[in-house]
Simulated assay, not measured.
Amino acid sequence: MRVVAVTSQKGGSGKTTLSGHLAVAAAAAGPVALIDTDPQGSLTAWWNERISKTPVFAQASLASLGDDLAHLKEQGFKLVFIDTPPAITRANQLVISKADLVIIPTRPSPHDLRAVGATIDMAEKADKAMLFVINGATVRAKLTGEAAIALSQHGTVAPTILHNRQDFVASMIDGRTVLETHPSGKSAKEVKTLWAYVEDRLRRLPVKASFKTVPLNKAGFGNRTHPPIDGVHASQ
């Protein structure tokens, strides 16, 4: 079973939307579970509006996350997506420590790029594979290319960019995704292509022996501070 943590320090990066869309795309090929660790409960609210029984929503707590994941594995789930709160907390580090892959959605803006360093630090401290997903981009904007270049200096950037379209947000209102509301649209094509890439990355990752944890300092974080990401301008 593979565990994917979708996390970012910056609020509004699109973690919940990305978690739901990737999970729906992945569920077409096998059993997928969703876990919501964000106190705001946006993913939970979306799933409660959903008619389809897939992906499955799993009740889990941070205190028993390792046991909860082991139970899902015993039940035959092949993939778990975990949505996280927009912050750098001990809870986020715990989720990252249980993950095989850390997906970091990042909007192509100077504020988002400056904020992403702390998330990178947590993933690197836990020795986890990272994947940046540029989200909410404006079509043909110069800033999008600059963001990709800046992020590529710190890790792998998904070749598929999710663009800012109203159908992404609208589809989440009633528990669906663009894969279900506009299956032939550009947004759905982007999600399918992105999932194919993520699936390939997961397939290539080494199999872990257990859900291992990482040491925390007194503040609950790693000791190293990651430098901010520079080189991106506000012009489009």
Rank of each mutant, 00 (worst) to 15 (best):
M1T: 01
V4A: 05
A5G: 10
K10G: 07
G11F: 08
G11N: 14
G12F: 00
T17V: 04
L18F: 07
L18K: 05
S19E: 07
A25D: 09
A26G: 11
A29P: 00
V32E: 01
I35W: 01
D36Y: 03
D38E: 12
Q40L: 08
S42C: 12
T44D: 12
R50A: 11
I51Q: 12
S52M: 10
P55S: 10
F57G: 03
A58G: 05
Q59Y: 13
A60W: 12
A63I: 02
S64G: 11
G66R: 06
D68I: 14
L69E: 01
A70V: 13
A70Q: 06
K73H: 13
E74C: 06
Q75H: 02
L79A: 03
D83G: 05
Q93Y: 09
V95P: 00
S97G: 10
S97D: 08
L101T: 14
H111N: 13
H111P: 14
H111W: 14
R114Y: 06
R114P: 04
E124V: 07
A129R: 04
L131K: 13
I134G: 03
V139T: 10
T144W: 02
E146K: 00
A147M: 10
A150C: 10
H154T: 07
G155K: 03
I161C: 03
N164D: 14
D167K: 15
V169W: 14
M172N: 09
E180V: 15
S184F: 05
S184R: 06
A188T: 09
V191G: 09
T193Q: 10
L194H: 08
L194D: 07
V198A: 09
V198R: 04
D200P: 07
D200V: 13
R201F: 08
R203V: 08
P206A: 00
V207T: 10
S210N: 08
K212P: 13
T213K: 10
V214L: 09
V214N: 12
P215W: 00
K218W: 13
N223V: 11
R224H: 15
T225I: 07
T225N: 15
P227C: 11
D230L: 00
D230T: 02
D230Y: 01
H233L: 07
H233D: 08
